[in-house]
Structures are given as C-alpha cells and as structure tokens.
C-alpha cells in the first residue's frame, strides 16, 4: 500500500484531527489570555494600585466562557443559555446531503449509513430543543448586561 492509497482511505481523518488540533490551540490560547490578565493584575497589585474593573471582569467573563464552551461537563446546565437551532439545521442538512449521495448509483453504503446517523441525530436534537424551548427557563430581560453570573 503506497501513500496515495493511504490518503484515499483516510482523507476524512483530516477533519477530526484538525478539530482536535484546534481544540488544543484554543485551550492554549485561552490559558495564555488568562495568564496575561493575571500578570497585569499582579503588576497593579505590586504598585499598590486598584486594578481597573474591566481586568477583573475579564477573569470573570473568561470563567463564563469556559462554562459556555463546556470545558467541564459538570456544568452542562449552563449550555442551555446558548441554545440555538443552528445545530438542528446543520445536522438535517448533512443528513439530506449524505442520504442523497447514498442514493446515487454505485455509491458506497457508508453515505447512506452516515445520512441515517445524522438524520437520527437531527431528529433527537430537534426534540430536545423543542422540550427545552417549551419547558426550559425563560430568557431574562437583563441577560446581556449581567456579566457576573454565579447564582443560576
């Protein structure tokens, strides 16, 4: 088996591996950002000055961002805040596209299988979104202004 054959068989690995690398990069740059904020705060503290409020805010909103991105699965409930219908649309589109590919003559059955998998995922996501839209918490009127959320 030569390299071309290997690429032909495993080209799709580019996407998961690329996603994983992006995750690592995001983690490192997130860390860098937070550490730099701490460093600046430290230089204020060393001079005995009161740090600007937005620097402290940067730490807080960082925490919120971490929760929103679901770095820690224990905080799953925080994701509800950002529930959008985009995921349903993307999954449904993938299901339709892959299903269509699978219906073409001479195509691999993998496409049909993937289309069905994405279809099931889209339907499940749709039902979950529907449930959370009907029974979930309402959006607060001042949500955009609340930066320091610890209680909910």
């Amino acid at each position: 088996m030569n390299f071309e054959q290997l690429f032909r068989d495993y080209w799709w690995l580019i996407f998961p591996v690329g996603g994983m690398l992006m995750g690592v990069f995001g983690m490192i740059s997130h860390h860098y950002h937070r550490t730099e904020t701490l460093r600046i705060l430290k230089s204020y503290a060393d001079q005995g000055k009161e740090p600007p409020a937005f620097l402290l805010d940067a730490l807080k909103s960082d925490e919120d961002r971490a929760l929103d991105l679901d770095y820690d699965r224990g905080y799953r409930k925080h994701r509800r805040r950002h529930n959008s219908w985009g995921g349903v649309v993307v999954f449904a589109a993938l299901a339709v596209g892959l299903g269509y590919m699978g219906q073409q003559a001479g195509s691999s059955p993998v496409f049909t299988a993937l289309g069905m998998a994405f279809g099931v995922a889209a339907v499940a996501l749709f039902v979950l979104k529907l449930i959370s839209a009907v029974f979930g918490p309402r959006r607060r009127y001042d949500e955009d202004k609340r930066r320091d959320r610890v209680d909910d």
């Binding site: 983690m27 997130h30 937070r34 705060l41 740090p51 402290l56 805010d57 730490l59 807080k60 960082d62 925490e63 971490a66 929760l67 770095y71 820690d72 905080y75 610890v150």
Partner: peptide, 10 residues
Amino acid sequence: PEALRRDNRF
C-alpha cells in the same frame, strides 16, 4: 478581589 476568590475553572 472577589474575581480571584472564585474558582476560575477550565
């Protein structure tokens, strides 16, 4: 500061 007391989780 209060912001530092919190557990800034990843």
